[in-house]
Nucleic acid binder design. Structure first.
Length: 586
RNA sequence: GCCCUCGUAGCUCAAUGGACAGAGCACCGGACUUCUAAUCCGACGGUUGCAGGUUCGAUUCCUGCCGAGGGCGCCA
C-alpha cells in the first residue's frame, strides 16, 4: 500500500545508478523484509548484476550485486520515511519508521469505507458456477464449485471487476427422464415434503435401482424420452412442475449458504440454439454430418493440422439428432457473449471436463467467434471421501448437503453451549450457523484449486487450528475490546510510544491486504485470502496477548484501540470475501 | 498410446525464481484472579519423489524416469 513511496524510492535508486552508468533490467521488485520483527521493504540487485554480466563485463554476480546494493545504500539521501537503509547480501533493505508508517496504515484502514477495495478495472467477467442437476440430490461433491465460484466472485467484485454470477442447471437429459418415469409409475400425484431436494434424490436413486434390477424397463424410458422430444403437453407440464421443485429446493440451499446468482441458465434453454449452431457448423464444413450411421463430429486435430493428437474429436450431435452436453455448451458460450459485454467468461467446473471445454472453445474459435479465446476454465479437483472414494449419486456414496449443514451447525452449537452457556438461544443458534457454515466453506478455499479435498466429518468439523473459527474468534476478540470502548476516535495520531513488535507485525499484515486481494483476483485463488487472513488473525492473537489495550496509558490505549478497530475491519472484510460470516460473539 | 494434475515434516497443507523451506494437526512440556484459553508459549519434526538441465540463485521453470489420481467420438 506504499506504491507512491516505493516509486519515489525506485526513482532515486535509478538516478543513483544512472550516475554510475549502471542500468536496471526493468522495474525494481519490492518485497517485505522477511525477517520477523523487522519492518520495511527490500529489493535485490542480482538482476542488475546479471544484466552487466550478460552485456560482456566480467563480473561475479553475487559480489557485484552486493557492491551495487552498498553503493545505493551509501548514496541514498536520508529520508524521514526510511530512517535506516542497509545493504545485505545483494539486497537493499529499507526500514520504515515504525511510528510514521503504523499511523499511516491504521489511518488508511479507518478512513476508507472498504479498505482493500480495488479501483474499477473496467473489465466485465461472467463466472459460471455450481451447475446442479435438477431431479437429483445436492451432495458435498457439488459444493466445491458453488463455494469456490462464490468466493471468486466476491473477490473479483471487491478487487474492482464487474462480475456477473451465472448458474447453469442440468434440467433435461436422461436422468430427468428416468426420474419422471419412476414418478409416473410409482409416485404419481405425490408432492415433495419439506426436504424436497432429498426426496428428489431419493426418487432418482430409486429409478436407478429399478432399472438396474429390470433392464427391460429401458424401453419405457425410451418411450418417455420420445414423448418429451415430441413435446407431449402432459410430459412437458410434469417436467415444468417437478423441475420447479428442484429449483426451489436449490434456492433454499443457496440462501442458507448465502450464495446468489444474477443469471440462471438451463440446458433446456439452449438445446434448440445448440442444434442450430451445429447446423451452421455443418454448413461451414467444420462439422461432419455422418448421420444416420454415425454422429455429427468435429475433427479438431485434422482441422488444425496437428500431427499429434491434442483436441481429438468432438461429438456435437447424436446420430439420432438429439442434443448432447457439447451441443448445449456451444450455444451457451455464444449466448453469454450475446447477452453481456464480456471481457472474460469463466467456468468453475471440475478438472475432468477440461478437455471438453478446450474442444468446445476451439470449435467456436475455428467457427470464427473471436470471443472464444476469452473463455476460461477455472478447474478444480474433486471432493473425495476417505479411501479415495469418489462421490457418486448412483452408488450412494454421498454425503448430502442438508445433512452436512445440519451436522455442522449442531456440532458448532454444542461448542458454543460449552464455551458460552449464558448466551441466549437465538445468539447461540446464530453463532452455530456462522461457525458451522464457515467450517464447511473454509476447507474448500484454503488450498490450491488443483488439489483434491478429502472430505471427512472429523476434519470438516474440527474447529481448531488453521480454520475458519480461528479467524472468527480473532474477530470476536477485537469486538470484545471495542464493546467496552465504543467511542473511538478516527483521528489517527502517530503513536508516541515504542511499538510492541506484535503491533508492528499486525500492522504489516493489514498493510498487505489490498495487494493480496488483487493477487487473489488476478489468479482466481481464494487461497491467497485464507493465507493472509490466517496471518492477520495470528498476528492479532499475538498482539492480544502481549499488548494490553484497555488498561494501557491513555496515549497507548488510544492508538491500540484504533489498531483493534482496523484489525477487526480487515478480518471482517476478508471473511466476507470467502462468504463466511464474522460473528461478534462466540 | 496420447494428454492433464499432484508428489514438501508422521498426517493435512503453505511458500510473486530470491535471504535460514513455513503453518496446522498429532505427540511431549508449559500458561486462565487478565480485553473470553475456540487462545498463547516452548520442544520435536525436512536429502522439497529420483536424475539431469537452465540460472548468480530452483520447492518454483525445462527434459527424462518413478509413484498416485484423472481425461481421451455419440455420459454430464
Amino acid at each position: 500500500m506504499f506504491q507512491k513511496e516505493q516509486q519515489n524510492l525506485a526513482n532515486q535508486i535509478r538516478d543513483i545508478l544512472q550516475d554510475q552508468d549502471i542500468s536496471l533490467p526493468g522495474e525494481l521488485e519490492w518485497a517485505p523484509i522477511p525477517f520477523s520483527g523487522e519492518w520495511g521493504i527490500a529489493t535485490s540487485f542480482y538482476k542488475t548484476a546479471a544484466l552487466e554480466a550478460r552485456s560482456g563485463k566480467s563480473v561475479q554476480i553475487p559480489r557485484r550485486a552486493e557492491e551495487i546494493a552498498s553503493l545505493v545504500a551509501d548514496k541514498l539521501p536520508p529520508w524521514d520515511l526510511f530512517p535506516r537503509v542497509e545493504a545485505v547480501n545483494g539486497y537493499l533493505n529499507c526500514y520504515f519508521d515504525p511510528h510514521l508508517f503504523s499511523a499511516r496504515v491504521v489511518k488508511r484502514v479507518l478512513s476508507e469505507e472498504d479498505f482493500g477495495q480495488g479501483d474499477p478495472q473496467g473489465e466485465t467477467l461472467m463466472v459460471e458456477y455450481s451447475q446442479p442437476n435438477t431431479h437429483k440430490a445436492f451432495h458435498v461433491g457439488h459444493l466445491r464449485s458453488a463455494i469456490l465460484g462464490d468466493a471468486v466472485c466476491r473477490i473479483l467484485d471487491f478487487a474492482g471487476y464487474d462480475v456477473i454470477r451465472a448458474n447453469y442447471f442440468g434440467d433435461m437429459g436422461l436422468h430427468v427422464i428416468k426420474w419422471l418415469w419412476n414418478y409416473l409409475d410409482r409416485h404419481e400425484g405425490e408432492t415433495p415434503p419439506e426436504d424436497a431436494t432429498r426426496w428428489m434424490g431419493d426418487l432418482y436413486a430409486e429409478a436407478n435401482r429399478r432399472l438396474e434390477d429390470h433392464p427391460e424397463l429401458e424401453t419405457e424410458i425410451r418411450e418417455l424420452y420420445g414423448r418429451w422430444d415430441s413435446q407431449d403437453p402432459e410430459i412437458v407440464a410434469l417436467w415444468e412442475k417437478t423441475r420447479q421443485w428442484s429449483v426451489d429446493g436449490f434456492q433454499k440451499l443457496y440462501d442458507e449458504l448465502d450464495i446468489h446468482f444474477d443469471r440462471l441458465y438451463a440446458n433446456s434453454e439452449v438445446e434448440f440454439q445448440g442444434k442450430e449452431l451445429v447446423d451452421n457448423l455443418i454448413e461451414k464444413g467444420i462439422a461432419e454430418d455422418l448421420r444416420p450411421d454415425d454422429a455429427v463430429i468435429v475433427r479438431l486435430d485434422d482441422l488444425l493440422g496437428l500431427k499429434k493428437e491434442k483436441y481429438r474429436v468432438l461429438v456435437v450431435l447424436r446420430s439420432d439428432g438429439t442434443a448432447l452436453y457439447a451441443t448445449e455448451d456451444l450455444a451457451l458460450a455464444k449466448l453469454k457473449f450475446e447477452e453481456y459485454p464480456l471481457d472474460r467468461s469463466i467456468y468453475v467446473v471440475d478438472v475432468r471436463q477440461s478437455l471438453h471445454f478446450q474442444q468446445v472453445w476451439k470449435t467456436l474459435e475455428i467457427a470464427g467467434y473471436e470471443w472464444a479465446e476469452r473463455c476460461q476454465h477455472l478447474s478444480y479437483e474433486l471432493v473425495n471421501l476417505p479411501g479415495n472414494v469418489v462421490m457418486a449419486s448412483r452408488e450412494g456414496t454421498v454425503v448430502l448437503l442438508e445433512d452436512l449443514i445440519r451436522e455442522a451447525k449442531e456440532r458448532a452449537y454444542q461448542v458454543v453451549e460449552e464455551k458460552n452457556p449464558d448466551l441466549s438461544d437465538q445468539q447461540k443458534t446464530e453463532i452455530a450457523r456462522a461457525v458451522g457454515l464457515g467450517s464447511i466453506k473454509f476447507p474448500m478455499l484454503d488450498r490450491e484449486n488443483t488439489r483434491i479435498v478429502t472430505f471427512d466429518w472429523e476434519s470438516a468439523l474440527d474447529f481448531n487450528g488453521q480454520a475458519a473459527p480461528y479467524i472468527q474468534y480473532a474477530h470476536v476478540r477485537a469486538n470484545s475490546i471495542l464493546k467496552k470502548e465504543p467511542e473511538i476516535s478516527l483521528e489517527v495520531l502517530e503513536p508516541a510510544y515504542d511499538l510492541d513488535e506484535t503491533e508492528v507485525a499486525l500492522i504489516e499484515t493489514l498493510a498487505q491486504y489490498p495487494a493480496v486481494v488483487q493477487n487473489a483476483a488476478r489468479e482466481l485463488k481464494p487461497l491467497h485470502i485464507t493465507n493472509a487472513l490466517y496471518e492477520t488473525a495470528r498476528a492479532f492473537n499475538a498482539f492480544y496477548r502481549a499488548a494490553p489495550v484497555l488498561t494501557a496509558d491513555p496515549a497507548v490505549k488510544a492508538f491500540r484501540l484504533q489498531l483493534v478497530e482496523a484489525s477487526r475491519r480487515v478480518l471482517c472484510s476478508g471473511l466476507g470475501l470467502l462468504g463466511i460470516e464474522a460473528p461478534r460473539v462466540m
